[in-house]
């Protein structure tokens, strides 16, 4: 009893603490339950299905009867599948375009809105707002805007750019990019939140010293502020790539991968194969490809999460 009273006053781990710590070492049975119930649920609903996707990817199966083992056939077929190639190419375009644009705009806005002054709260809220909408809602909003007589075209015509206006979502050349713009609109607020938090960790005295030395605003950002954002950049990078590879909802809501598969991503093509056409083996093979693309970035994120802990 008396020993705990002295322990509670201390901040560092010292010898007097060993006794209570030793008591914790015996994990009570109920605590095991606390851990094992959630763990079992996650094993059953995440890890077990994930393993099954791998084994399904080596089969041909329409969901009834037994799955037929076909070895690597699904993967071989993927290589010859023009839609898969389009989807893979689009996924790369999507990752670069979605990531690049939302990071550029989000970072620029975070730097602009970093310091408190009048109106900053309103501007921030307005830019956050789209990210609370679901991707389906965002998709429908922009579908309305992109209609032939919608706001996008009427705005273009109003400023004299009649030639540019078109059926944005029905044109195979523009459909993917039209969806991309909508997705970026929603994502920017989130990236801005991450960078605003990162900028708080930036030492203001360094920037002031650089300003006194005559560095321009751009130089201060490029050589003083930006290098200090390295941690946030890693998170943003990993998050953006993981998000891009998952992207499904907004494309499904706006184009379903069309017209003529021109806006197909790996995720939408996987869904189409697995659920619309019920090629479960082939769909699983696409899912495995998505997983293999994502795993490197997942590990990056985990390593970072461990280091900061």
């Amino acid at each position: 009893m008396s020993s705990t009273a002295t322990v509670s006053g201390q901040e560092t781990t010292g010898p007097p603490r060993r006794r209570p710590a030793a008591a914790v070492r015996r994990v009570p049975r109920v605590v095991w339950l606390f851990l094992l119930i959630p763990l079992a649920i996650e094993l059953a609903w995440v890890f077990w299905p994930a393993i099954n996707s791998f084994s399904l990817s080596f089969t041909r199966w329409s969901g009834v009867g037994a799955a037929e083992n076909v070895g690597l056939d699904n993967y071989r077929n993927l290589l010859d599948d023009p839609i898969f190639r389009t989807a893979a190419k689009n996924t790369v375009i999507w990752t670069i375009g979605f990531g690049g644009l939302s990071v550029l705009i989000g970072l620029a806005l975070a730097v602009t809105l970093n310091r408190p002054r009048r109106g900053v709260g309103i501007y921030r809220s307005a830019i956050y707002l789209p990210m609370v909408f679901s991707l389906v809602v965002t998709g429908l909003f922009w579908r309305v805007l992109y209609q032939p007589d919608g706001a996008v075209n009427s705005t273009l015509e109003a400023i004299g750019l009649d030639g540019v206006s078109r059926q944005w979502l029905a044109d195979p050349d523009t459909a993917l990019y039209a969806v991309l713009v909508a997705a970026v609109w929603r994502q920017v607020g989130y990236i801005m939140v991450l960078y605003l938090a990162g900028l708080k960790g930036v030492d203001p005295s360094l920037e002031e010293a650089a300003a006194v030395d005559g560095a321009s605003a751009w130089q201060r950002f490029r050589y003083v502020v930006f290098p200090q954002l390295r941690g946030v950049n890693t998170v943003v990078f990993a998050v953006t790539v993981i998000d891009s590879l998952r992207t499904f909802d907004i494309v499904w809501a706006m184009t379903r991968g069309g017209p003529y598969d021109s806006s197909q991503l790996l995720s939408t093509y996987m869904f189409q194969q697995g659920f619309t056409l019920v090629n479960l083996g082939y769909g699983s093979a696409i899912a495995v490809v998505i997983f293999l693309l994502a795993i490197g970035f997942i590990i990056t994120y985990l390593v970072r999460a461990t280091r900061e802990d």
Binding site: P38, L39, E42, A44, W45, V46, F47, W48, P49, A50, N52, S53, L56, G63, I242, L245, R246, F248, L266, S267, M270, F271, G274, F275, L280, G283, S284, I286, A287, V288, I290, F291, A294, I298, Y301, L302, A305, T306
Partner: peptide
């Protein structure tokens, strides 16, 4: 970390087996 990794997986890798389960 294993539990966190599960949440980071692309859902696509789970969809078909989850529907079957």
């Amino acid at each position: 970390l294993g539990m966190l990794a599960g949440n980071l997986l692309p859902p696509q890798i789970l969809l078909i087996p989850v529907a079957k389960i």
